[in-house]
Amino acid sequence: MLLRVENLKVHFRTDMGIVKAVDGVDLSVDTGERFTLIGESGSGKSVLGLSILRLLPKNATISGRIVFDGKDLLKLDEREMQRIRGRKIAWIPQSQSSLNPVLTVSFQCAEPIIQHLNYDKRSAWRKVLEIFEFLKIGNRAREYPHQFSGGMRQRVLVAMGISTDPKLIIADEPTKGLDASKREQVVELFRRIKDKTMLLVTHDLYFANELATKIAVMYCGKIVEVCNAKDFFKEPLHPYSRGLLDSLPLRGLKPIKGFQPSMINPPKGCRFRERCEFASSKCKEEPPLFNLNGRAVRCWLYEVKS
């Protein structure tokens, strides 16, 4: 087991009250998996990714355990954390503005290699060229980010991510706002690095279907379903997961009724209750994650069967 998150809570203090962005999440990622967190905007999935790297803003309080490679990341001090960020765990941000505009792409890509792996400049340069070759960035190492298209910039970000050969890669919404053919290129890009262990955060079901080995569905700060990607797309169990898939145009274009509840005062009991067509009085109690032939579902519908 490479990464284990236990009862993680991330709360933000705001003027409106405390936003419970992540509210008691457990998950584990094994080496070699492409663990994919899906959910709609505001479900807390990006915050979960950021909290693993401890890159949260100051108004956040975080509790629980994040065990990576045998160490609890929440107990490390900032110095030790710096040795993990970019070295053991890499973060691939959403494309566009994440590169420094005044440095060449190769310099930015070489930086983590020199910092973390103690390479000298020359061998770092060679390594960068090797990675650029592998990701088909071509002979453009001396260019600046503005000379690159959005898709090429994303390749550079991926190159930076894999440059130190990290044990885990976290990618945040790699396909957000892209058209169909660009999205295909991103899928292709991630396929090239598929021997890596990844935590993918996305709301793009198509992207998840192409790359995930495991799927976890997040709703309102909680994980409501975890299972193998294949089973998930064949037969989602949780009513929210079904709702998500049924709202795809060719699967019925059926919206989920109602709106996402507030994360300041989430509903008591099952958080999906008010929008769920199967809701009963039982749902006023918080359902645990039921285990069903290796799949985990947070819904009372599956109580009897487990």
């Binding site: 706002g177 145009p249 274009l253």
Partner: peptide, 14 residues
């Protein structure tokens, strides 16, 4: 609907 989630997309299209 390109900036919206799938379930929101479904309701706007409807």
């Amino acid at each position: 609907t390109s900036m919206l989630d799938v379930s929101t997309q479904a309701s706007i299209i409807r």
